[in-house]
């Protein structure tokens, strides 16, 4: 089961993790990307993510398909938010399950790294004295 969701509202992290896993899986690995209150020495008040929705879905699907081709995954859920996101909130949640933990760990690491490299989503940081677009992964 592969599930890909782009949404504006807050991510229900527990629900995403519960969605992953079948009775034959021994491991569910999750990654939660959170909004930090600082970036390059500046205090961040909140973020905004802009998304090219149609293409982002296609690209996340490709990343997940690649992960399935490389590791024996049973389920994978990727939820990415867009719009305004407050400090401490989750911007992305990934949960993948596999019979054994090693495969699930490697797959989730691959998925988050590759999402950051190629999925058309852009982050803008807001400070007390302005804002700036962030280009490229960090």
């Amino acid at each position: 089961m592969k599930t890909i969701i782009l949404q504006q509202e807050a991510i229900d992290i527990v629900h995403v993790i519960r969605e992953a896993g079948t009775d034959s899986d021994g491991a569910v690995v999750s990654f939660i990307g959170r909004v930090r209150n600082n970036s390059n020495g500046k205090t961040v008040l909140h973020l905004e993510y802009e998304v090219y929705s149609q293409m982002a879905r296609i690209e996340i699907q490709k990343v997940v398909d690649d992960a399935y081709a490389r590791w024996s995954l049973s389920t994978c859920v990727v939820v990415h938010r867009y719009g305004r996101i407050g400090i401490g909130e989750a911007s992305i949640v990934i949960a993948a399950s596999a019979p054994h933990r090693k495969e699930a760990f490697q797959a989730v690491q691959y998925i988050i790294d590759t999402v950051k490299e190629r999925v058309p989503i852009w982050k803008r940081e807001f400070y007390s004295n302005g804002s700036s677009w962030i280009h490229g992964k960090d």
Binding site: Y52, V119, W122
Partner: peptide, 25 residues
């Protein structure tokens, strides 16, 4: 909705997206 290089040729009714390096996640 498919990445391309700048030498790619466009066809009628194509959608060309132009954007900066991505920063999602």
């Amino acid at each position: 909705e498919e990445y391309c290089h700048d030498d790619a040729a466009l066809s009628d009714d194509d959608t060309l997206a132009i954007f900066p390096p991505v920063s999602g996640g």
